[in-house]
Amino acid sequence: MALYQKTFDQFEAILKCDMIDIKKLKALAFNGCPDENGIRSLTWKILLSYLVLDRTKWALHLSKHRELYRGYIRETIIKPGLTPSSESAVVDHPLNSAPDSSWAVYFKENEVLLQIDKDVRRLCPDLSFFQRETDYPCSEILNQEAGFESLRKRIESTSLKVENRVNSRLDLQYQKKANHSKTTYDMNEYQWLPDGHEAHWEVVERILFIFSKLNSGQSYVQGMNEIIGPIYYTFATDPNLEWREHAEADAFYCFTNLMIHIRDNFMKIYDHSEFGILVRMQRFLILLKKTDESIHYLFEKQKLKPEFYAFRWLTLLLSQEFRLPDVVRIWDSLFADQERNFEFLLYICCGMIVLQRDRLLNGSESQNIKLLQNYPQDIDVYQILEKAVELKRLYVL
C-alpha cells in the first residue's frame, strides 16, 4: 500500500507541473497507471500526443480541438442535398448516378456504417458499460438541427444487406472469439434507447464513422472498434466531470493519433512494410525462437502459424484476449513504450506463450490452437508483463 501511494504521489507531482517531464511520466506509466483521480485518463492523453507537454496551454488546446470535433460532426453527419442552414437548398437527388453525387457517396458510406454498427454493438459483451446511457449525448443530433440526422435514423432507414459489409482479414478469428455465429445482421440485437438518449456504444459508433469519413483512404476496418473501446471507456469513466463530458472528442483524437502508429496492421497494402503485420509476425517468430527453441520447433511441427493466433494479438493490441481491466493495464506499458513502435508487444506475446510452455509442449495441434486462440483468463496479467520485461532484458530484436 505504501508503494502504491508513493507511485500515486509521483504521478500527481508530474501531472501538476507546468511542463510535463515526459521521460519520467513514461517510466512511471510503463509500470502501470493508478485508477484513481483520472490519472490513467490524463496520462493516456499525454502519451498519445493529444495533450501538449506545456500544461499552461491545455485550456486553449482543448477548447480549440473540442470545437473542431463538433465541426466534424456538423460536416460529416448530414443529409445529402441539404446544408445545416437551409433545408430547402436541394443540390442533389437520390437517383443521381453521377460519381460525384453526394447521394452516391451517402449510400456507399452506409455500407461502412452498417459494419461499424454491427461491431460496436458487441463491444465488451461481458461489461454492461457500453449498453448504458451516456450523460452527455450529442446535442446537435438530438436537437435535430436542420440537415442533421442521427446515425440511428440512418441505420433504421437503410435497406443494406449484410453481404455488403466491409471485408476484413480479421473476420474468422474475430467472430470466433466473440462467439458471434449469426450470419445475418440483427438490428434488434440490442434495443435502442428512447429518442433523446444515447448509449455509450452509439457514441463510439459516431467516433468511428467520423474517423472513416475523414480518413477515406483507410476508412473503417473491422477490429478498430476494439481499439477505440478501451480508450473511450477510460475517458468516459473519468471521475472529473469536465473530462468525462468531453470523452467523445478526446477519445476521437487519441484514437486518431494511435491509428497513425498501428494503421499498417489494418491495411493490406502495408503488409510488407517495416511495421506491416506480416513483417511483425516474422519478428515475433524470430523472438520466439530466441526465447524458446523447443516451443518454436513444436509450432513448426504442428504447423501452428502466427496467422492463426498472433495476427489478432498484434493487430488488436491484445484487446480481445483479456478482460478490459487487464487490457488497459497492458496498454499503460504499450503507450509508455519509449520506442513508440509497440515492439514491447512482441515480448508480451512471447511471454504469454512461455507461461503456457508446459501445456503447449504436452498438447496436440488442436489443443494448442484452441489454447492460443482462447488464452486462459485466470492468469495474472502482471505475471505476463513481468515475463515480457525479463525477455526484453535478455533478448534484443
Rank of each mutant, 00 (worst) to 15 (best):
L288F: 07
S319W: 00
I369A: 09
K268E: 15
L316M: 01
L360N: 04
V327D: 08
K290Q: 12
L345K: 04
E343D: 13
L298T: 11
H261T: 07
Y347W: 09
L285C: 10
D332H: 01
Y347N: 05
R359P: 10
F266T: 02
R280V: 04
L317Y: 02
L317R: 01
L334T: 10
V327G: 02
M352T: 13
K268T: 03
L385Q: 12
E386G: 14
Q282D: 11
N341E: 15
L372M: 14
I330E: 09
F299T: 11
L371Q: 13
I369W: 06
A336Y: 05
L360I: 13
Q338C: 07
L316H: 04
D271R: 04
Q377M: 05
R263F: 00
F255D: 14
F344G: 05
I369L: 10
I348V: 14
R359Q: 06
I262G: 07
R329K: 14
P376S: 10
E386R: 10
R312P: 00
L298N: 10
D264A: 11
S319P: 06
Q377G: 13
L258W: 05
E300G: 12
H261N: 09
S294A: 14
L258F: 13
H261W: 03
K303S: 14
F344K: 04
A336M: 01
I369E: 13
G351N: 10
S333A: 15
F342C: 10
Q320G: 08
V327C: 00
K289Y: 10
N374I: 04
L304F: 06
C349P: 09
L345A: 11
Q383E: 14
D264V: 01
E293S: 07
I330Q: 03
I348K: 02
C349Q: 08
N341D: 12
E365A: 15
Q338T: 15
L385H: 03
K301A: 06
I277W: 01
E386V: 05
I262S: 03
F311H: 07
K370Y: 06
C349W: 01
F275D: 14
M259F: 03
L345D: 13
Y375R: 06
L334K: 02
D380E: 15
H272E: 14
S364W: 03
E386H: 04
L355F: 00
E339G: 06
C349R: 01
W331S: 08
R359L: 03
E339R: 13
E343K: 01
K305M: 07
L360E: 07
E321A: 04
L287A: 09
R359V: 09
F311A: 04
R263Q: 12
R280G: 08
K370L: 11
W313S: 07
L314D: 14
M281W: 01
K268C: 09
E339M: 09
H272F: 03
L334Y: 04
I353L: 13
D326V: 00
S273Q: 12
